[in-house]
Write a protein that binds this DNA or RNA. Structure first.
Lengths: 149, 149
DNA sequence: ATCCTTGCAAAGGGTTTGCATTAAA
DNA sequence: TTTAATGCAAACCCTTTGCAAGGAT
């Protein structure tokens, strides 16, 4: 468990933010959907299904706030909307995805090799790298089965 | 030189597309701006500066068409608009960028190591990878100079 | 009581679409 | 001459914002 509520409360107090019911509900949605990449609309729908309606504008504002506080990580899969996932590690670092071009499925993968790559590139380019985003596009196992072409 | 006009003409003929002046002008914009990552609006502005006005909708439609034909590569830098660059190599493959978090500058870098990484990941995940997109975020040399903090 | 947060509706920014007109082939 | 492409404006979608009402500390 990485999201520590009392820690969070303090983070909020420090900055004069309030830990409102809406914010807690939205946080809970991400805790309950660790493996998913939720858009604002997704979050809004999930909350509504729980008969806890929250204004869409509030959802957007909360997602932005959580991103700033590094509780969430904003990701862009090129599908025309921003998606968010809970920031499991304290360092906002390892976000790598295999994106299936057939079914759109997004599969996570662990890396280590990328760290080395980052070091080499930083050295060659005089660029101070603080984060990276890597996406591989292709065909997942399922879709390979379904259409052997 | 990678963009071959007569080859292009044939590609168009095959699919009953027409090589209109608008399309030629837009193609030329990308040929003249090989190193840039142009948005639809950028293209529109460049064309207007040449007193060759083209409707913005046509620009969008042309960019989409060229992407399908793999003449252009669509990229997303997370700045709220799609950007395009000319597809230099025949295989739509190596698009890697260093994005400066201070000035927004985008620097290209050559890779090779990524190919190896791709192979390893494909093996581990049973995923057939056909393309990848890698972005490193950090601070470019210039911005490092300006604010040593 | 203060100041942040909410919800609604309107506005915004990028992109797409319908339709009549124009122009490649 | 046929069929696709253009240009304009309206529509679209996601996201942001203004503002009055509500709520946490």
């Amino acid at each position: 468990m990485n999201v520590d509520l009392s820690n969070l409360r303090q983070k909020f107090r420090e900055r004069d933010y309030k830990l409102t019911p809406q914010r807690q509900i939205i946080l809970q949605v991400f805790i309950n959907n660790r493996d998913k990449h939720l858009s604002a609309e997704d979050v809004h729908n999930i909350v509504r299904q729980q008969s806890n309606d929250i204004g869409l504008a509030t959802v957007y504002r909360t997602l932005e706030l959580f991103s700033e506080l590094e509780i969430l990580q904003k990701i862009n899969f090129g599908d025309g909307r921003s998606r968010y996932e809970i920031n499991e590690t304290s360092s906002p670092h390892h976000h790598h995805h295999l994106i299936c071009l057939t079914c759109g499925r997004v599969i996570e993968f662990a890396d280590d090799l990328l760290e080395d790559l980052e070091t080499i590139i930083a050295k060659n380019s005089n660029f101070t790298i603080v984060d990276h985003q890597v996406k591989f596009y292709g065909y997942c196992q399922e879709c390979q089965k379904h259409c052997e072409d």
